[in-house]
Simulated assay, not measured.
Amino acid sequence: MTTVDPAARRTTPTWCGRAAAALAVASAVLHVGALGEHAPSPAPAALTVVMIAGCLYCARHLWRRGDQRDWILVTVMNVVMIMLHLTTMSPGGAGGGHHGHAVPLVAGAADASLPPLMAAALAVASAEVLLAVSVVFHRTRGLDPAGSSGTLSA
């Protein structure tokens, strides 16, 4: 098993972690806003509360240290959130449209507008994914996980 010298790891500027933490808090606030829509249904309301806690958990870790595990967790959680919401909002999707608002995924469709809260949530999640993937790429490029000399073997 090869380990990477901690000094060889690329570091990320503090502002990246702080920016990601701010986006995670914004995501938590957006989930709080959506909580009112989920109040009549206990299961979605409970899931929303769990997501609020998850956003705040990530925000805390990204603000304090932002290690590789945190960045990967942010990426995965946000990609899953985007996929879940786009799937449940699509016509004929599992949810029959998020909160009863079926949104056609075809550009130029007559009522292709997203509810403002959902549009904001998807924008924040997309920004989090872009930032997190950029940080993970920056930290891992040039590192050889196999510990070889950097040459390709046949």
Results as ranks from 00 to 15, higher is better:
T3Y: 12
T3I: 14
T3Q: 13
V4Q: 05
D5A: 11
P6K: 07
A7S: 12
A8Y: 08
T11Q: 11
T12A: 13
T12E: 07
T14H: 15
C16N: 07
G17V: 06
A20W: 02
A22M: 11
A22Y: 09
A24P: 01
A26F: 09
A26M: 11
V32T: 04
A34G: 02
A34M: 04
L35E: 00
H38D: 04
H38I: 03
A39I: 10
A39P: 02
P40G: 03
P40T: 06
P42C: 02
P42K: 03
P44I: 01
A46R: 08
T48C: 01
V49E: 01
V49S: 01
M51L: 09
C55N: 05
C58V: 11
A59Y: 00
A59C: 07
L62Y: 01
W63K: 08
W63R: 11
R64L: 14
G66R: 01
G66S: 10
Q68E: 13
Q68W: 13
L73N: 05
V80S: 13
V80E: 09
M81T: 07
I82H: 06
L84P: 02
T88P: 03
M89I: 03
P91Q: 10
P91K: 10
G93V: 06
A94P: 10
A94K: 12
A94Q: 10
G95H: 03
G96H: 03
G96E: 03
G100M: 06
G100Y: 02
G100L: 09
A102D: 05
V106Q: 14
V106H: 14
V106S: 12
G108S: 04
D111P: 03
D111N: 10
A112C: 07
A112L: 07
A112D: 07
L114C: 03
L117N: 01
M118K: 02
A119E: 03
A119M: 05
A121P: 01
L122S: 03
A125K: 04
A125G: 07
A125I: 04
L130S: 12
L131E: 00
S134A: 11
V135Y: 01
V136M: 06
R139K: 12
L143F: 13
D144I: 12
D144F: 15
A146K: 11
G147D: 08
S148V: 14
S149D: 14
S149K: 14
G150Q: 08
A154S: 12
A154N: 10
